[in-house]
Amino acid sequence: MNIGLEAFLGLSAVLFALGLYGALSKRSAVMVLMSLELMAVAVGLNLVAFSRFVTPEAMTGQAFAIFAMVVSAAEIGLALAIVIAIYRHARSVELSALERLKG
């Protein structure tokens, strides 16, 4: 069996689908954020696999993976700060406690 680019793309698609399911189905804000991180990790794996198999010399994929990591680190820091702020306000991190946001 030859492990090439397709195997890595398939693995990251599976991880992304699992993260997508979690982000859509979980009712705790922290669980949703954890699923989002899973999706970000799947994207990073995709980029690094492309870097290894398509642009090994220029390392474009690795540079992109670093920037994707920066963005997802900033995102998770901000999102968890918002979760803390919501908890102060509503004394709960359940998404059902935020139904007022529907307007």
């Binding site: 397709e6 793309l9 398939g10 698609a13 599976v14 992304f16 689908a17 699992l18 997508l20 399911y21 859509l24 189905s25 979980k26 009712r27 705790s28 669980m31």
Partner: peptide, 26 residues
Amino acid sequence: VRSLDFSPSAALLAAVFLGIMYYGIS
């Protein structure tokens, strides 16, 4: 300790996504 929050529609959407990705990659 929380409930598992199983959601058939979310599972369906994730499965559709996976199918499209499989089709595209292959």
